[in-house]
């Protein structure tokens, strides 16, 4: 398995995440998609780290940061989802359209 393979795998993961973001109606489905995309980015970082860059520690640190940020993002997103659910009795994206038109 070479660099290109990893990059393609990451791309496929990213595309699946994007697809999930675009099609899921449940808000948590969107969150799942976002997590997948973040992980795809992480794979890219580590792959480049492994194959191209001479100093592998930096890539690992970046991935660690990504994981930390993802955790923060998930926390906020989940609380927003809960809050929205309480306000609308629904966690459906299509129901959150008060600003339309």
């Amino acid at each position: 398995m070479t660099l290109s393979h990893f990059l393609l795998v990451a791309l496929a993961l990213f595309a699946l995440g994007l697809y999930s973001v675009l099609t899921r109606r449940h808000l948590i489905g969107l969150l799942i998609g976002v997590e997948l995309m973040l992980n795809a980015a992480s794979i890219n970082f580590l792959a480049f780290d492994r194959f191209v860059v001479k100093d592998p520690a930096t890539g690992q640190i970046i991935v660690l940061f990504i994981i930390g940020l993802a955790a923060a993002e998930a926390a906020i997103a989940l609380s927003i989802i809960l809050s929205a659910y309480r306000a609308h009795r629904s966690a459906d994206v299509d129901d959150l359209d008060e600003l339309k038109n």
Binding site: F6, D49, R50, P56, Q60, V63, I67
Partner: peptide, 11 residues
Amino acid sequence: GLFLYLGSPFV
């Protein structure tokens, strides 16, 4: 697992 293969068991 892929991370493991990429050389970073910690991550």
